[in-house]
Each structure stands twice: as structure tokens, then as C-alpha cells.
Design a binder for these strands. Structure first.
Lengths: 337, 337
DNA sequence: TCGCGTTATGTAAGCGTTTACATTTCTATT
DNA sequence: AATAGAAATGTAAACGCTTACATAACGCGA
């Protein structure tokens, strides 16, 4: 049976209030009694019960993190960074993997809210749906605790967004290709999420601004959750149907790796005959040969900003509802410009 | 201000005990009042306060998960699977990323224990050190709650281990190569963990049993935390020093990918001139061309068994202290046997 | 030595549940 | 119609902590 504050107070010959005071630091306690209590706590390895504390304080100092799939490379990295940031700010985190279904997301949100977390972080743009109905759970949740969005944006009271400007990053990358003289660019995407749409719109922007005729014909939508092999095959298929392209812009690094694989199989040389750009600048970039050029969305910066905003919100400060950063292109071997 | 069980009881014109009873299901409540209460709970979206519940029950129904780095592909997958398993058993999980330092591990363990989690899962063999001192924190922790080890083994009361028999899997893979006539096998490893040692010893077993002379000269230790590019370069260096090999056995998939990269760069053809086998059968296997042959350590099975054992332990049953599974080789394009 | 203002410590209520035990309300049997 | 026994519901204590408020101890000047 673990020790309680009451046991400690007895051993130290003081009241529980005094023990509580030295535990929490703030109030005035005589130096000698403080030392005595601290020694006893040390000796018996007493640790206060967090649930009891949460009841009194009405806060667990714990943040709920919701994430569709923590085994996804990008999301895993984000979760990791968030945890580091939270820990260094004295907060714990409760992680919940929801899958991609909106009903499940709602259920898990309620589950985690019942733990009385102080706030909720939703990791990834897949938490934003395309219908009012799909997003209602965010509205409901935000009535109870602040909701922080990583890599997505949603304008609603008590909802704070931190994200990379995917649209303009993509525009930037496309225009870089165009400047290098590559005008037949295959745009490859699969997910249908908020940020995926942003990226696609950024691509449109670039192509329209540069008046590339018929560019829409080179937009390839890969089945979601298909394997790298399947995507590579889909690209080969697409080419076999008569489309030609000398650049591939992929909405994430996995897709880009599939593109590189397609090139390997078809014997197209990278970057001479074909340039490839991925998105996220994840560790996957170093897995292919040559190494993958990719757009870095500065996850470290985003997570840091998100937690900073969160801490501010929790301490009652007025904080920006939306923090937008811009990404940048990290050039490696799959491009030669 | 969130609703409490008291608010609900008032609205339903019953006592809090009755509400609690319908919440917990077990006790007898008249069908009509049950429905009335359920309706009200539904209407007002009431969710019980988990901290309060934890106080009464002396259990949070929460499991602490400690993991060095949740952005590592293998660990991330393990954590994900564990969470799924725990959730389907009605447990929440509190994840804490500790880094690889033992002092930090100890600190985080204490932190998470103060949350009064019901048990602790340590993910990955890096939680086992090579000295008594390094492992003392596990002994201390196990005095408070059951400790479950994934992919590591430690014989101590209240510590339960679930793992893949890495040594024999590796022996198996090596002998498969030998049977295919490849006798000059480069063994590539980097980490220094418990399971890494097991794998190496499995390799020794195979080579000794088959009386391969001088095989030790082909064991290459790559600097930990070096990039794929650096490891590929290290292999090239090694070869330049006069070593020849026609098979590479890597202690994890990342190393194997580096091996494939080395082959690409040096123009050695896989699998005709060089066979490569990785370990973990992670999603990385599909990233290379050709796809990577790899040893599957059955993470799904391991995590399932671990949680099953855990649930048993928590409900007071006698459970096996150690569950050992064997891995198997999944053959893909980097081998032709 | 007295009394006053600090400073240190103690007392007890409250946080939202669960549950043993007590009480009330039914049902069925006589 | 009375009553035993079962079924449904209520009462109140307990879980381990924080903290407002009450009280005690101390130091200091007159």
C-alpha cells in the first residue's frame, strides 16, 4: 500500500497541510521543518497521488494527444516532439490513436476528455473533415478544453491552429521546377485531408500563374493506403497511357519514394531524366538513392510554437488563434537545380 | 463547469448511487430508471471524472508506456500496437519518451509512477543495461507495479518479459544464406542493446556450427546514430580494405537499407551478386528496390501476448514470467533463395 | 512584562466517485 | 390483508490531496 501524505505527516510530526505546503513550494514553512519533511519524503520514496491532486486542483497537468496513427512516420515524429515539449513544460501527455474514421475520433475524444485533461492536441490535418457534421466533434470538444491543431486550421472559439503554409510551399517547389525548365510535372497525391487539399491548390496556383497548358492532365491520384509497390505501378500505368513527364511533385515523402522506385524499374535516370520532390523532409529522404529532395515543413518549429501557445492559453493569456509558418525546399540528389 | 454525477442524479430524481450503478453496469437497477438516467447522460453528454473514479477504485485503469524514442520506426509501431491492445481491453495509456540515458529513464519512471498507473510497459531492449546499477531502476519500479518488458528479458519478481528469440531467428537466417551457398557473409550491426547482442550471438552460432573459417573478420560495427549515407560509406570503406562478401545480414532494416544503398552506389547487383537480409520486417522493406528480405519478429503477436499477460497479472492470475516467440524470414527481392 | 504584528502550523471542507450497509418498495404467498 | 423475501434505491464514508480560515508561536518595542 503506497504511502499517503497522511503517513508522511505523522512521521514528521506535522499536519498534512504542512506537508502539502512543502510539496507545492509556494507557502511559508520554517526551514527546519521543511528539511525534516523533505528528508522523510526522500527516505520513504513518497510520491503524491496524481489523481487526488487532480481532484483538488481540478487539473491533471496532462494534455491529451489525439493522432490517427502513431506508426505513421510523420505523425510519430510530431507526437514525439510534442511530448518532449510538453514534458519540459511540466506537463504529461495522454496519447490516443484514433484511426481515420470520424466517429472513432469523436469517441476517443470523449474518452480522453473524461480523463479531465487540460487541453487536447489534434495531430495531423486528417482531423478536419470536409463537412460541418464531421467537424462538430471539434466544436463540442472545444467547449470543454482548449483544442490545439497541428498542421490544420479551423476557425472556432477555443481552437488554436499551428501549421505550415503547405499551399505556398508547394507553389514554391513547383515554380522552382518550372524555373529549371521542367514544364511537364506530374503531381502525385493520395490523401484527401485538409493539408492535402492545400498542397494541391498550391500546385494549381503555380501552374496557372505560369500559364502551363493542360497541366491538369498530369495530376495523379493514388489510392489511399496503397503500398509503395502499387503506387510505383500506378505511375508506370499512367505513363503507359501516353502521359509524359520529367518532374514529379509528390504530396509526401512516401509517394516520392514510390516515384523513385518507378524510375528505378523503368530505367529512368534521376535526376537527369526525371526530377522528384517529396514533402515533409522526413528520414525517408535518406532511404532512397539518390537522396530525396523534399519540402521541410519545420515540424520542430511548429510543435514548439504549438506548445508555447498552449501554455499561454492555459495560464490565461491571450494567444494567437493561428500561427502560420512557411516551409522550404531542401535540395538533394533527386533534383539538379 | 462540467457536470458531475450529482447533477445527473438530481435531474433524474434519483440518488448518486443509482447513477453510479447504471454507469458501472453490475448492480441491479430497474429498467425504467436505468433508461431515464441513460437518456439524461446522453442528453447532457455527461462523462464521469476519471480522477475521482481512480480515487475510489485505487486504479486509473491506465498503463504507463516508456519508450526511448517514439519516432523510431520499430518502437513507434510497437507503441501503436500496444495502445490498440490496451484500448480494446479498456485501459488507457500514458506514453513517456525517455531517450537512451539511464538516469533519464529512472526519472521518467518515477514521474509516471506518481500518476499511479496500474502497470508499466518498457518498450525495446534498450531498457536493459549491462550493469547491475543500470538495471536497479527496474527493480525499484517493480516493487510498486508490474513491469512488462517488450523485446527484452529480465528475471526478477513482478517483471514479465515478452520477446522474440532474436538469437535463433538470426541463426536461422544465416544458415539459410549458407545453404544457398553464400559463405562470405557480412554481419552489420550498430546498437549495443540486449537484443542486438542476442542477434550477434545467433550469428556466431550459425557460423560456428557450419565451421566457416575467419567469419569474424566480416563483422562490421557501424557507429550508432549514423545516417544511412554514412553507413553505406562505411560498408564501401570496409570493402575497399580488401574484404569480400556476397551476403549481408543486418541487425535491423535501416542498416539493410544502407546496405542496399551501398550496392546501388558500387553497382553491385542485388540479389545476383549480393544478397541482403534485414531485421524487423518493417515498412522500410518496401522502400528499397528490390524489396527487402527481412526477419519478421511478429510484433503483433508479441504485443498481443504482452497485453494478455498484463491483464492476467492485473486480475491476480498467475502468468508466465517469460513468453518467447520465434521469428521467421520473409523473402523478397534482395535474396534469391 | 504586555500586546501587537508576523510567521508558522493546524483544522476541516471539498473535489467526484464507488460501495457497504440501511432503508424503502415491490411481489408473491398465505 | 398481512407479511416474508427479493428487488430497488438511498445514505454516508472513504479515497488522497489542496487551501481558506483559524489558531498558535514567536519577535520586538514600549
Amino acid at each position: 500500500m503506497p504511502l499517503t501524505i497522511y503517513d508522511i505527516s505523522k512521521k514528521a510530526n506535522v499536519s498534512i497541510a504542512t506537508v502539502s505546503r512543502v510539496l507545492n513550494g509556494s507557502d511559508s514553512v520554517k526551514e527546519s521543518t521543511k528539511k525534516k519533511i523533505l528528508d522523510i519524503i526522500e527516505e520513504y520514496e513518497y510520491t503524491p497521488n496524481a489523481s487526488a491532486r487532480a481532484m483538488s486542483l481540478r487539473s491533471l497537468r496532462t494534455i491529451g494527444i489525439l493522432c490517427a496513427d502513431s506508426s505513421d512516420v510523420f505523425l510519430a515524429k510530431a507526437v514525439y516532439l510534442l511530448q518532449q515539449e510538453l514534458q519540459s513544460n511540466g506537463y504529461e501527455s495522454l496519447l490516443c490513436c484514433t484511426g481515420y474514421n470520424f466517429d472513432k475520433k469523436k469517441n476517443y475524444m470523449n474518452l480522453i476528455l473524461s480523463k479531465k485533461v487540460d487541453a487536447l492536441i489534434l495531430v495531423g490535418s486528417n482531423f478536419i473533415g470536409s463537412t460541418e457534421e464531421e467537424n462538430s466533434y471539434i466544436r463540442d470538444g472545444s467547449a470543454k478544453v482548449p483544442i490545439m491543431l497541428l498542421n490544420a486550421s479551423f476557425d472556432y472559439p477555443n481552437v488554436y491552429s499551428t501549421l505550415c503554409d503547405d499551399a505556398s510551399s508547394m507553389t514554391e517547389a513547383a515554380e522552382e521546377m518550372l524555373r529549371a525548365g521542367i514544364r511537364d510535372i506530374l503531381y502525385l497525391y493520395s490523401a484527401d485531408s485538409y493539408s492535402s487539399k492545400k498542397k494541391l491548390s498550391g500546385f494549381h496556383t503555380a501552374m496557372k500563374r505560369n500559364e502551363i497548358p493542360g497541366y491538369e492532365d498530369l495530376i495523379l491520384h493514388a489510392e489511399e493506403s496503397s503500398s509503395v509497390e502499387e503506387i510505383a505501378a500506378a505511375i508506370a500505368d499512367f505513363e503507359a497511357k501516353g502521359h509524359t513527364f520529367h518532374g514529379i511533385l509528390a504530396a509526401d515523402d512516401t509517394l516520392a519514394i514510390a516515384a523513385v522506385k518507378y524510375a528505378h524499374k523503368k530505367g529512368r535516370s534521376i535526376p537527369d531524366d526525371l526530377s522528384v520532390i517529396g514533402y515533409n523532409n522526413s528520414m525517408l529522404t535518406e532511404f532512397c538513392t539518390p537522396e530525396l529532395t523534399s519540402i521541410d515543413s519545420h515540424l520542430e518549429t511548429l510543435t514548439h510554437q504549438l506548445v508555447t501557445t498552449l501554455i499561454g492559453v492555459l495560464s490565461g493569456q491571450e494567444m494567437p488563434k493561428k500561427s502560420l509558418f512557411s516551409g522550404n525546399l531542401v535540395k538533394r540528389g533527386t533534383t539538379n537545380f
